[in-house]
Design a protein around this nucleic acid. Structure first.
Length: 104
DNA sequence: GGCGTGACCCCAT
DNA sequence: TATGGGGCCACGC
C-alpha cells in the first residue's frame, strides 16, 4: 500500500492540515519537515496532481506575496479572498494574522 | 551517476 | 520602499 512517501507527499499532507481562512508559507512547510528545501516545496506544488484534493492556493511567500499558482496568481488571490484572507494587489496584508504554523 | 531546473528566501545597496 | 545578487534542497532526465 502506500509506497514511498516522497518529499512532495509530505508537503501535501501538511498543506491539508491548513484550515480555510488561513495561509502558510513554503518555508513553514519545509521547516515542519526539518529541511530547507522550500525550493523543492514549490516544485512539488507545481507538479502536484492533487490540485483538487490539496488547497495549494493557501500557500504564500514569507514576504506576504501570494507567489505563483497552477491556475495563475490572479486566481490564487481570488481564492484566498474567498477564504476570508485579506489580499490586495496580489499580496497578503496581515500575513501574521492569517499565517498558520504547524508547530504549536 | 551527474547536471539543470524551479509556485523560493535572505541580505546588501 | 524597491532592486539585484547569491544560496539552498529535492526531483527528473
Amino acid at each position: 500500500m502506500n509506497s514511498k512517501p516522497g518529499f512532495n507527499e509530505k508537503c501535501y499532507q501538511l498543506l491539508m492540515l491548513v484550515p480555510a481562512g488561513k495561509v502558510t508559507t513554503y518555508s513553514e512547510i519545509a521547516g515542519a519537515l526539518n529541511t530547507r528545501a522550500w525550493r523543492a516545496v514549490g516544485s512539488a506544488m507545481a507538479k502536484n496532481k492533487n490540485l483538487f484534493n490539496i488547497p495549494c492556493h493557501r500557500v504564500v511567500r514569507s514576504d506576504g506575496n501570494i507567489g505563483q499558482y497552477a491556475l495563475g496568481a490572479n486566481k490564487k488571490a481570488e481564492l484566498l479572498m474567498e477564504e476570508g484572507v485579506d489580499v490586495t494587489n496580489g499580496r497578503v496584508q496581515d500575513l501574521e494574522k492569517f499565517i498558520h504554523r504547524f508547530s504549536g
